Each structure stands twice: as structure tokens, then as C-alpha cells.
Simulated scan of single mutants.
Amino acid sequence: MSTTPEPAQDPTLGSLLTERRRLLNLGYRMLGSVQDAEDVVQETYARWYSLSEEGQQGIDAPLAWLTRVASRICLDHLASARVRRERYTGEWLPEPIRHSATWSSTGADEGGGDPADRITLDESVSMGMLVVLESFTPAERVAFVLHDVFGMPFTEIADTVGRTPAACRQLASSARRRIADQRPGGSTAPEHRQIVTAFRQACQSGDLDTLVTLLDPDVESRSDGGGKVRAALHPVIGRDKVARLVLGLMRNASEFELVEEDVNGAPGITVHIAGTTIAVLALDIHDGLISDLWMVLNPDKLHAWTGYETP
């Protein structure tokens, strides 16, 4: 019977634990959920330590092995997630992550925590990118993330998804084209922040006319309440409808406070009532107008903001 080696006796433990951050970043980009990414990491390490000592020593590249196993777990999870999300109440949106936080399913610790538990923020975790990735097949998503984000060669990706390297190259290429079609060039960082500020001020003051001018005529708003809180069950399209939806939500919340805060690495807004975060808003901006608005209200996806206190 194989036994799990004690950490102090495992000469590869240090290198394996430094891989934790990579695996967490991989899992989040694959699945759009911090909780699911953590589960993937735990399952990956459990499989490593379930190997006999001889089995571990027989693996030439343990870190590559961990990445491959984690990717396979993500692939299986994505297939089952499609079924679960068909039964989800309303729109399903990726779990938002907070700037400079240490992520955990039980909350975020900005003052410390293990650096290995941090998700690196870049374009690949923007809310817009994650939403587009949700439209991919599991194989497309895995091939794209592994190659374009993590730089894995297609020969290794082929072993993960069970297809030829040429087929994996085609999957990644197809994913790349779809991203280019659905995510044309956006705004600069200063422009994005300026428009987010104007949006917050219009919402805070209830200025419908100003709010409308900030929205693209075909703006789309998607809300994720998860059946836990009241939210629009279907996308709302059009500047007038979206503006009235947003202000309606604000009017229904007494003594709310809007705070500008980075969401998935880009300027966004969090909504607080009595020191509690009740919503996180991410925005996409093109040609100087808000083209997409994603509102996450499901409290199960707001752990990173749990414990917020107003100044």
C-alpha cells in the first residue's frame, strides 16, 4: 500500500508548492471560478501524493506532470459545468476577483497570506475575456489557455485533450479568431477609468440623461444573482433599458455607496450597503462608450469583497 510522504521528507516539496500559484492561475482561467480553481489544485496535489515513492521518482518533470493533470481535471470539470450551468437560475457570470488580493473561497487577505495563493491579473482574466471563453467548447478553452496564456507546446496539449497536435493548433487558432471577432480593440486605461468615474457619479446622483450618454446604443447588461438575490434573468439590451435597470437597482437599495475599485484587473465598481458588498460591476468600453456591463450579485461569488468596511 502506498503512503503519502511527510512534507519534511519530500525533497521536491518546495518546487511543487511553488507550482501552486501557476495551477491556481490556470484553474481560474479555465473555469472562471476561484472555488473551482482551488478544488482543481487540491485534487491535483492529492493525485501526486497518492502515487508511490517509486511512482513519483519515475516522473521526470513533476511540474509538467502537475500542469497536465490539473488541465485534465479542468477539462472534465468544464464538460460537467456546461450541464450545471444550464440549470443555473438566470445568467452565469465568472466570479470577479479583486486587485492585489489573496484569493480563497472563504475570503481575501490583502495584508498577508501566502503569495502562492495570488491570481495574476492580466488581459486573460478580464471579465470580457472570461465571458468569451465561456462560449468555447471545453477543448477549445483548454487548448487556448494552455498555449496562448501559459505557452505550452501543442505536443503537450495534445496529450491533455486527447487530440493530435495539429488538431490542438486548430482549436487554439479558432479560439483566437473568435476572441478577435467578439473583443475588438477597447479603450485605453485612462479612458476606461474616466468613463467608470462618470458612470459611478451618474448612478450615485440618479442622473438618467448623463448615464444614457455613457452607454453604447447596443449596450448589453448581464446580471448574475444565482437565484440568491433579485437580478435580471436575461440580458438587457439598449442604452435606455440598461440605464433604467441600473438606476432602478440603485433606487431599491437604501443608503448604498458606490466605490471605484479594480475588478479583474480593470477599473470597475462595487456597491455597498451598511459596509457590506452587495454587487460587483465590470464594464467593457469601446469607442468611448460602455458596450457591456456585467453585474455580479450572487453572494456566493463575492467572497473577495466580504468584510469590506466603509472608511
Rank of each mutant, 00 (worst) to 15 (best):
R22S: 08
R183G: 01
E134M: 13
N25A: 03
V161C: 06
Y45E: 09
F154W: 09
S33L: 06
G107F: 06
S174W: 10
V69R: 15
S126H: 09
G32C: 01
L16A: 11
L289I: 06
V259L: 08
D287K: 11
A116W: 02
I119M: 04
Q182L: 15
A172E: 03
G32V: 00
I97S: 02
A175F: 02
R20A: 13
C74S: 13
R68W: 08
P184M: 04
L133S: 05
E123W: 11
A158K: 07
H234W: 08
R222Y: 03
I237M: 04
S187T: 14
S100F: 09
R87A: 14
G265Y: 00
S221Y: 05
G248W: 14
F199N: 06
G288M: 07
E53S: 08
R47L: 12
D262V: 01
R84S: 10
R72C: 07
T197G: 10
E261D: 10
D207W: 09
E220T: 15
V236R: 11
A70F: 07
T276N: 12
A198Q: 14
G128I: 00
W305L: 05
L26Q: 09
L208Q: 11
V296N: 04
V280R: 10
W65C: 08
T276P: 00
L133W: 03
N264P: 07
F150E: 02
T197I: 06
L281I: 14
P11V: 09
T120E: 10
Q170C: 02
D159N: 12
I59G: 10
I195H: 04
V125R: 00
E156V: 09
I59F: 10
A167S: 15
R21L: 04
T277N: 15
M250N: 12
L130I: 02
C203T: 06
R177H: 09
R87P: 00
H234F: 09
D207R: 08
P5E: 08
D292I: 00
A172K: 04
Q42H: 13
G206H: 10
G185L: 10
E191P: 00
V196T: 03
V41L: 04
L171F: 15
E53D: 13
L63D: 12
T270N: 01
S15E: 14
S52F: 02
R118F: 03
R176I: 01
G107I: 11
L16S: 07
D209N: 11
D60A: 15
N252F: 10
D224M: 11
R141A: 07
M129R: 03
A231R: 00
E110D: 11
L233E: 13
E260G: 05
D36R: 13
V246H: 10
L247Y: 11
R200L: 14
S71P: 09
S15P: 00
D122T: 02
V161S: 02
S126Y: 03
G248Q: 13
T276E: 15
A189N: 00
L66W: 14
S52T: 15
L245D: 09
G185T: 13
S50K: 12
E261H: 03
S2W: 10
S223K: 00
V296I: 14
P267L: 03
A139D: 15
T12M: 08
L215W: 05
A243K: 07
V34A: 06
G162I: 13
P7M: 08
L233K: 12
R84P: 03
D262R: 03
S174Y: 11
Q170P: 01
H286Y: 07
R222I: 09
V145H: 01
S15K: 13
E110S: 12
R29M: 06
